[in-house]
């Protein structure tokens, strides 16, 4: 088992290294234009360009530039923005992490609970009108662009029906710190949580339904039936349990991806200053050092989340320990 874990750990380091090289090459070696000009931003003066060249070591070979870059992001943390003169990038990223985590955690709780209920109900009543309705709604959730859904939510809760009893509690867009104002924190996040969760409820509900129906064909379910267990017990204690494996894998991947930037669109629409919004703002004024930093940190999150899922697997499933 130790060997399997070490192997996975090595793999994780390799993927992280690979991603960092790809990010580096995209930003520093894409043919087309001078990377210094890209980093310096629009209408940069000759002095700024010179400073960028010196700062990032553009007069040195590529591998030196790579090492310098990684050092700036992960070791010394003194990467500065040239578009917003002198703004330290790494602390800005660190400050925005709690916002993204708040958004993703809340949405995750919501989507896990709701999609498990939907998956069970749909599997239990399969091929009925209820099952078909739930699956159609799930598909609709998958098919809507999340940022557009966010705008629809804003239109309803901030403008059109804001004065009705249903949505008068919705505070204006923005984020409130949990430590300053727990109630405000909760209220501002409710609508973003629901918006983000809808997409994943669609995916997870459908995946769980399919997994439960598949596991109902297994031999151990027949054994359970032969023992005379009730259908409810078979569904909840036997079929659901094995079906959750697929669910857990997906969850690890999606959670990592969301913390690592897939929540970007939701953050932008609701004005939450998380990592995604930071990336978005940097995009708007072509602030490349900021984008490099957010992309690097985000990838680290994703890779770690994927590895954690695999570690949990190794702990749960004895077959994986030896292979």
């Amino acid at each position: 088992m130790i060997y399997a874990i070490l192997r996975r750990f090595g793999q994780m380091l390799f993927v992280m290294f690979g991603i960092s090289v790809i990010v580096f090459l995209i930003f520093f070696a894409t043919p087309g234009a001078d990377p210094a000009a890209r980093i310096a931003g629009r209408n940069a003066t000759a002095e700024v360009l010179e400073a960028v060249r010196h700062n990032f070591g553009f007069d040195r070979p590529l591998y030196v530039q790579y090492v310098k870059m990684m050092e700036k992001i992960f070791v010394t943390g003194d990467l500065t923005s040239f578009v917003n003169r002198g703004w330290k990038v790494v602390p800005a990223v660190m400050d925005s992490i709690p916002v993204t985590l708040s958004l993703v955690f809340g949405a995750a709780i919501l989507w896990v609970v709701v999609s498990i209920i939907i998956g069970i109900v749909a599997a239990a009543t399969r091929d009925s009108w209820l099952d078909k309705l739930l699956m159609a709604l799930g598909l609709l959730g998958i098919s809507m662009p999340v940022y557009w859904l966010g705008e629809v939510m804003n239109l309803i809760t901030q403008s059109r029906y804001h004065d009705s009893w249903a949505f008068s509690w919705v505070p204006p867009l923005g984020y409130k710190n949990f430590s300053d104002d727990p109630k405000g924190w909760f209220l501002t996040l409710v609508i973003p949580w629901i918006t983000l969760a809808i997409l994943y409820i669609g995916i997870y509900g459908r995946v769980l339904r399919a997994a439960i129906i598949e596991s109902l064909q297994e031999d151990f379910i027949r054994t359970a039936r032969a023992k005379g267990l009730s259908e409810t017990r078979i569904l909840l204690r036997h079929a659901l349990r094995t079906s959750l494996i697929a669910f857990v894998t997906l969850f690890g991947l999606d959670f990592g991806a969301l913390v690592g930037g897939s929540a970007l669109l939701t953050e932008v629409v609701f004005g939450l200053h998380g990592i995604g919004k930071l990336t978005y703002d940097a995009l708007q004024n072509l602030d490349l050092p900021m984008i490099m930093a957010t992309v690097m940190y985000a990838s680290v999150f994703v890779v770690i989340a994927n590895a954690v899922v695999d570690f949990v697997y190794i702990l749960l499933d004895p077959r994986l320990r030896t292979s």
Partner: peptide, 29 residues
């Protein structure tokens, strides 16, 4: 291994990185 690395990369971030460097000047290879 190359595919593994691309797979682990968050989709939108990869797309953003590629877009931001090509958006102003395009690509010339």
């Amino acid at each position: 291994r190359l595919l593994d690395v691309l797979w682990a990369f968050p989709i939108y971030l990869l797309a953003i990185s590629l877009s931001i460097v090509t958006i102003a000047q395009g690509i010339r290879i």
